[in-house]
Computed example of a mutant assay.
Amino acid sequence: MHTVRFAEYGAPSVLTVEEADRPEPGRGQVRVAVKAAGVNPFDVKVRSGAMRFGTLPRGLGSEVAGTVDALGEGVTDTAVGEAVAGWALTGGYAEYALVGTYAAKPEELDWAQAAALPVAGEAALRGLRELAPRKGETLLVHGASGTVGAIAVQFAVAGGVTVVGTAGEANLERVQALGAIPVAYGEGLADRVREAAPQGVDAVLDAAGHGVLPDAIALRGGTTERIVTLADGAAQELGVRFSSGGAAGQTPEVLRTLLDAQAQGRLVMPEPRLMSLANAAQAHAELEAHGSGKIVLIP
């Protein structure tokens, strides 16, 4: 099979397409013939060496959608040929990948839509779960036009929460269309949020990591209570909770919540940009350069 791997940390050019044996599923795992694999900022950090773990050479890609190709021992909740989406245990930038946590792909979603949801969707739902905004409260979402922020906004609004969403000037209309009160980034941000939410801010979810935590603390009256960041490394020194997630939050229930919401039109996401597996290096370069928009690789 074709797979994307890298033998040294560095620029996107270290990514190469290689031939490898198909992985064999272990107990509780399925092998998936990959139809689409999401590209995420986490992949960029691993490839660049900003985050180092495991051994080299290695593959990349943690979210995939495709058809079940083989079953590991003990698997009874799916069958060969079924369409699924989930988190890859082996590099998802490949023609075949092992998946341990998965859910059936609704017919209403294409492969790319399904592959674009697991990572960002889990992060958004995790942030909301940790903050637990209640109906009638006001939630501030930093980075509301990004993939994670947009998902968080829509689920919060659906739960009766008033959402103030920050974004760049070019994305304010999108934030408003999602049901949030749009506020532009830049100097004077805290004052603009106060004007948009004179009732105050009950909780803050930072999905952007653009140094907004001091403003978030000010808007919460000087306390770090009910502030969660998914992206800002300055969290620890400021006493803010950094939510990094992990396998515990990657459940079939989370996947079904996300996939069903999009299939039923309750979660509206922009169409991801499609690129070939051979162009994985270009995908990384564009993600580093622009930092927004979802890219999905098609084997």
Rank of each mutant, 00 (worst) to 15 (best):
L297V: 02
T162S: 14
L15F: 08
D215C: 00
A85R: 02
W87P: 05
R256A: 14
K135Y: 02
A36E: 01
P23E: 09
T138G: 09
A196V: 05
G233F: 13
P41Q: 03
R126Q: 15
E173Q: 14
E137A: 04
L219C: 05
T251C: 09
G121F: 03
G265T: 04
H210I: 13
A180G: 04
L274W: 01
G28M: 02
L267I: 03
G91Y: 06
A208N: 10
R27V: 15
A263R: 06
V14A: 11
L255K: 08
R273F: 01
Y102A: 11
P182N: 05
T67Y: 06
A112N: 03
V46P: 08
P252G: 07
A208P: 08
A112G: 10
L277E: 00
R266A: 14
V164E: 07
S48E: 10
A216D: 08
G222F: 04
S276I: 00
Q236E: 15
R58V: 12
T55S: 15
P252F: 10
A123P: 03
A218R: 14
V268H: 09
L98A: 04
F6E: 08
A104W: 00
A94L: 00
T224M: 05
P106M: 11
H290A: 13
A180Y: 12
V4M: 09
P252D: 09
T76C: 02
Y102S: 08
A33H: 13
E237F: 04
H284G: 05
G121K: 07
H2E: 15
V14L: 11
G233E: 07
V153F: 14
Y93S: 03
Y96F: 15
A261M: 08
L125F: 05
V153I: 10
S292T: 15
D215M: 01
P270C: 02
A247C: 00
G10D: 12
Q262G: 02
G81S: 07
E173A: 15
V201F: 14
L255A: 10
A283T: 05
Q176V: 00
T138N: 13
A218T: 11
E73W: 07
D191V: 00
V163K: 05
V30S: 12
P23N: 10
Q236P: 06
S244G: 13
W111E: 12
R192A: 09
V201N: 11
G233T: 08
V80A: 03
L109E: 12
S244F: 11
V34A: 03
V44P: 01
V164Q: 12
Y185L: 11
D215W: 00
F53Q: 09
L117V: 10
D260P: 01
L255P: 07
V99C: 11
G168N: 13
L89Y: 00
D232W: 00
L15C: 05
V153S: 11
R220C: 08
F42C: 01
A144C: 05
G165W: 07
I181F: 04
E173M: 01
E73S: 13
M51R: 14
G222S: 03
E137D: 14
S244Q: 11
G222W: 02
L139P: 03
R266F: 10
V32E: 03
F42N: 01
